[in-house]
Simulated scan of single mutants.
Amino acid sequence: MHRSRVYALLIDTPTQEAEAAAAFWAAALGATARTLPSEEQFITLHGALPEPGPLVAVQSVDDAPRFHVDIETDDVEAETRRLLALGASEVARWQECRTLRVPGGHLMCVLPVESDREVFESEAKTWP
């Protein structure tokens, strides 16, 4: 058995437009935009969703604009297998993360637990 939950909604934005997009989304959602010092490609939007809900962030990418969901899990391999069985296909691996394309064409990332352990434990679903 393993557990997983929605960790984040990412607003993927071409790198040259990321700051303007973050400013727009922060104002539109009544959030505070903060760049993560350790991961400068992410600008989090604190307060965009009620706490302790999923994180919302603008991610600068060298690709087309889109939205994608991050799923955090205590077993990346098991969660990836579960989602592949549901119809997703794996398109990339980066460190411990897996990028999947799901039916309908959207991207999804599966990553190790990033949130506070208490939040993960209280919100994650258990899968066989």
Rank of each mutant, 00 (worst) to 15 (best):
A23L: 15
A88I: 02
A18D: 10
R117K: 06
E39C: 07
R98T: 03
P54W: 15
E90C: 01
E121G: 06
G30T: 09
P52I: 06
R93K: 05
T44R: 14
L83M: 11
D74E: 06
T99W: 02
L111W: 01
Q41N: 15
E77T: 02
V91T: 06
E114R: 13
L9N: 00
L84W: 05
V91N: 03
R34M: 12
F120G: 11
C109M: 11
L10H: 07
A88P: 04
S122D: 14
P50K: 07
R34H: 11
A22K: 12
P50S: 13
G87L: 08
G53T: 14
M108C: 05
P65E: 10
K125S: 08
S115G: 13
A22C: 11
E118Q: 14
V58A: 08
R82K: 04
V76P: 01
A48G: 10
W127D: 01
E123Y: 10
D12C: 09
E40K: 15
V113S: 01
T13L: 09
V113W: 00
C97E: 08
E19W: 12
D63Y: 06
L36E: 14
G104L: 06
W94G: 00
Q59N: 09
T126Q: 14
E51P: 10
F67Q: 06
Q16Y: 04
R3A: 04
D70H: 10
A21C: 08
T126S: 14
L111Y: 01
A88G: 04
I71G: 03
S60V: 06
T99P: 00
D116G: 09
Y7K: 08
R101M: 00
P54F: 15
E121V: 04
K125H: 11
G104Y: 04
R117W: 04
V91H: 03
L55G: 01
R34Q: 14
V110C: 01
E114K: 12
V76D: 01
E114W: 08
L86R: 07
T44K: 11
F120L: 09
I43A: 05
A48E: 10
A48V: 10
W94I: 00
